[in-house]
Amino acid sequence: MDVLINVFVGLHIIGIASLLGGFLTQMKAMGAGTARFTPAMLHGALTMLVTGVLLVGFNEMNDGALNHVKIGVKLVVLVAILGLVYVKRDEERVAKGAFAAVGLLTVLNIFIAVLWT
Score class of each variant (00 low, 15 high):
residue 1 M to S: 13
residue 1 M to G: 10
residue 2 D to F: 06
residue 3 V to P: 04
residue 4 L to D: 09
residue 5 I to T: 11
residue 6 N to H: 15
residue 6 N to K: 15
residue 7 V to L: 15
residue 8 F to S: 13
residue 9 V to E: 14
residue 10 G to H: 06
residue 11 L to N: 06
residue 13 I to D: 12
residue 14 I to P: 05
residue 15 G to I: 03
residue 16 I to K: 02
residue 16 I to S: 10
residue 19 L to Q: 05
residue 20 L to I: 07
residue 20 L to A: 08
residue 20 L to R: 00
residue 21 G to N: 04
residue 21 G to T: 00
residue 22 G to W: 00
residue 25 T to H: 08
residue 27 M to N: 02
residue 28 K to V: 05
residue 29 A to R: 06
residue 29 A to Q: 03
residue 30 M to T: 09
residue 31 G to T: 10
residue 32 A to Q: 13
residue 32 A to L: 09
residue 34 T to D: 12
residue 35 A to T: 01
residue 35 A to S: 05
residue 35 A to W: 00
residue 38 T to A: 10
residue 39 P to S: 10
residue 39 P to H: 08
residue 39 P to A: 10
residue 42 L to A: 11
residue 44 G to C: 08
residue 44 G to Q: 11
residue 45 A to T: 00
residue 46 L to M: 11
residue 47 T to N: 11
residue 47 T to M: 14
residue 52 G to M: 11
residue 53 V to R: 08
residue 54 L to P: 03
residue 57 G to Y: 11
residue 58 F to E: 15
residue 61 M to G: 13
residue 62 N to G: 10
residue 62 N to R: 14
residue 62 N to S: 15
residue 65 A to P: 00
residue 67 N to Q: 01
residue 67 N to H: 07
residue 71 I to N: 02
residue 72 G to R: 03
residue 73 V to D: 09
residue 73 V to L: 13
residue 76 V to L: 13
residue 76 V to Y: 03
residue 77 V to R: 01
residue 77 V to C: 01
residue 78 L to A: 00
residue 78 L to I: 00
residue 84 L to E: 12
residue 85 V to E: 08
residue 88 K to L: 15
residue 89 R to G: 03
residue 89 R to C: 01
residue 90 D to M: 04
residue 91 E to Q: 11
residue 94 V to A: 06
residue 95 A to L: 06
residue 95 A to H: 09
residue 95 A to V: 03
residue 96 K to T: 05
residue 98 A to G: 02
residue 98 A to V: 13
residue 99 F to T: 01
residue 100 A to P: 01
residue 102 V to N: 07
residue 103 G to P: 11
residue 104 L to G: 14
residue 107 V to I: 14
residue 108 L to Y: 01
residue 109 N to I: 04
residue 111 F to N: 08
residue 112 I to F: 05
residue 117 T to I: 08
